[in-house]
Design a protein around this nucleic acid. Sequence first.
DNA 1: CGTCCCGTTGATCCCTATCAAATGTAGTGG
DNA 2: CCACTACATTTGATAGGGATCAACGGGACG
Lengths: 248, 248
Amino acid sequence: MSHSIPRSLVKNLDLFRAVPDKDLDTVLSIARPMRLNAGDPVFQQGQPATQFFVLLHGHLKVVQTTAEGEQVVVRYVIPGEVFGIAKAMQRPAYPASCLAVEESVVLGWPSAEWDRFMTSNLQFAANALQAVGQRLHDAHARIKELSTEEVEQRVARCLLRLIDSSGEKTDDGIAINFPITRQDIAEMTGTTLHTVSRLLSAWKEQGMVLTGRKRVTVRKVDDLIRLAEGAGACSSKPAARKKPVEPA
Amino acid sequence: MSHSIPRSLVKNLDLFRAVPDKDLDTVLSIARPMRLNAGDPVFQQGQPATQFFVLLHGHLKVVQTTAEGEQVVVRYVIPGEVFGIAKAMQRPAYPASCLAVEESVVLGWPSAEWDRFMTSNLQFAANALQAVGQRLHDAHARIKELSTEEVEQRVARCLLRLIDSSGEKTDDGIAINFPITRQDIAEMTGTTLHTVSRLLSAWKEQGMVLTGRKRVTVRKVDDLIRLAEGAGACSSKPAARKKPVEPA
DNA sequence: CGTCCCGTTGATCCCTATCAAATGTAGTGG
DNA sequence: CCACTACATTTGATAGGGATCAACGGGACG
């Protein structure tokens, strides 16, 4: 193996789950590793989708920029996940930009290899379908939230999801594993950095979170869950019922 | 063939594109056709995903219900599309409900058959991946809109998308092909039926649309596009720039 | 021909974006 | 080691887009 990428690195990735070792070796022989510093782009929105990737270490941010120049954070990529598979879905170009939010390591393959992987191993196709299915599910959950919930709930849920996927137990609580700004959280929840700042300030006041520059730590997960479920300031929200409650 | 479903019915579906005839015959022999009247459910949110389907004729609505009882329209299914493929993404239950909005005909297969189709024909797997990829793309577009655009733009875009997928040329303009209420449009765009009603009234006033009970016809597509692009009431929106424009 | 459902429209309120400005914090180069 | 700078964060004041509340009008269907 010219690249000396240990097979174990890839063996545990969801995308390659249950793929036989001999196929893995082929996969690895073509893989091109890449190191990234914080802020480095992996690819840019609109570029031809020449490669697809797996994140080995670090954290990436996937961002869509609107015609008006506003940004929306599509998702954060965590180690082990595939990304940049636009070509696999027959899209010629990346629909979003992807950049490292901290030092990261990715593995890349030419998009053309995707079809080879699919044909040579059926399990690979099923794994890919599941991965995309999961993302579709997440996207629908987000649409539901943006459509029906208030900002406080959405931000609470956002933090919960972040500590769920990238939480790190510390002395003070569960910290988000990577640098993230108020602006980032705003772009994930469809609000403004000002509103996020106000919410975090209020929550810090109550001891629910600890905050620092580009850092958030959750101290009281249960309280945050309660907020996400809708136990916010609106004390009299009758929880959308079809028929009015009839007093006996 | 016990069911006498003509092969031509399935041959042109995206999901079965480029699938050889002999495989198609197998597919057809297992297919179970189903007729639906307006309002009939195909499956309900939370039910075990025992089948997946293709819509042959009519229109279906996919709806998610929140814990608070509010509804979000995930999408409308148009003839030729697959739906209910939760199991293919390894989800045990349907994440949303699906019901006919008019007389419709669907073809259903047991979920277990999915894997057989995948294994027996690679093209099928690729087609499925592309279909889900397209939906993911649509979902992201919607998230972007909900996050950054105002109600007027979102509703305008919604109508445009509807006439694009289900528009029918009439003497008066392009009509949406199936019955749809203000409430439905509201649930697609994250607003209320009142706001949608007001917008449609205003647009009718200007001759941009024609409206009827459960019917919408677009007369001036270009004007609607202009609205969707952001040419709304906000005359002074500085289009989110990083640096202020410097006069020479 | 009555009843349900869909649609329309006015009045009011409030959540949250927007505007404005100060404070704090990491990094940098002298 | 400190001044300087760029960026992140905080916080107050204000305004406005839409949700909400309330009522009525109208077409379809049994």
